[in-house]
Design a protein around this nucleic acid. Structure first.
Length: 264
DNA sequence: ACATTGACCTGAGAGC
DNA sequence: TGCTCTCAGGTCAATG
């Protein structure tokens, strides 16, 4: 699930529910999600403290602590957050539960355990260490930066869009949506795309992602012109009605309209 | 340096 | 019903 729009929705959810509450309990339900922090160290860092603010870069959510340091949440393929009061009504696959003095809990969920939780000193350092590219929605990430960033790469346009070290935030679903809007076949090579196509691709990124956030990353709310709600076996192109095709690009499924997105 | 592939996990759904 | 196979929106290490 969680690409940039999903994580932005999680960030707003956390910010509207869980800031400025004194933390009373910390339950690590699975050690597997922990990266460079032990359960004990995490408990010590959180208990008695508060979440102060939030930040997002690509698919990473950073939560600032009032003491010092940041909690980092990554959601993998199946992660999400849930804020609730009744512990007996919590969903399955909770991996971290943070309880506050107000009686509510913030749960981090990850069915497939591909997500991660970490504790760091500074988001900037982490972004640098992981060599993440600019966040796709950052204002400073403009057309000039986009062209400069993408120019050095030789692979397909889809794998380039999904490479977090080139641009942070775009995953499999939104790469397909962006390419559909740009009418580009997913296997098109970046090399040889002319200026006008690059500009159109850039505009698609800057249109699709905010629209998805506005729709709370829920495909059921997406405009009719969007590919994502049709992105399944038997799905049809919202523009021309052609049956969508599925191919493999860098070992992931790419859905596209064979009529609107011709191989060039 | 860059691009691609398989491995890491669990669970749902299809087909037999 | 139960078995097997494939697939799923993530990254990372190993390979070409």
């Amino acid at each position: 699930m969680p690409e940039l729009p999903d994580v932005e929705v999680f960030r707003r959810y956390l910010a509207s529910t869980s800031l400025h509450q004194r933390i009373r309990t910390v339950q690590v339900q699975s050690n597997r999600i922990l990266r460079n922090v032990s359960a004990k160290k995490l408990r010590t860092a959180l208990r008695g403290h508060q979440f102060e603010s939030t930040l997002r870069h690509g698919k990473f959510l950073f939560v600032q602590l009032d003491s010092c340091g940041w909690l980092v949440l990554h959601f993998g393929m199946t992660g999400y957050l849930k804020y609730f009061k009744q512990v007996d009504k919590k969903p399955a696959h909770d991996r971290l539960l943070v309880g506050s003095v107000n009686g509510f809990h913030l749960g981090y969920y990850s069915q497939r355990l591909l997500g991660s939780v970490d504790l760091i000193d500074d988001p900037k350092d982490m972004i640098e260490t992981k060599r993440l590219g600019p966040d796709a929605l950052d204002r400073d990430f403009d057309l000039v930066a986009f062209k400069r960033t993408i120019a050095a790469h030789r692979g397909t346009v889809k794998s380039t869009l999904m490479n977090q070290q080139i641009i942070a935030g775009i995953g499999n679903i939104y790469a397909d949506e962006i390419l559909f809007r740009t009418r580009l076949h997913p296997a098109t090579k970046v090399v040889g795309l002319d200026e006008s196509v690059l500009e159109s691709l850039f505009k698609s990124i800057k249109a699709v992602l905010p629209k998805a956030v506005e729709c709370r990353a829920d495909p059921a709310r997406f405009p009719r012109s969007y590919l994502t709600p049709q992105r399944h076996a038997g799905g049809q192109c919202p523009r021309c009605g052609t049956r969508l095709e599925r191919i493999k690009i860098s070992a992931r499924s790419a859905y596209f309209c064979p009529h609107c997105q011709r191989r060039s």
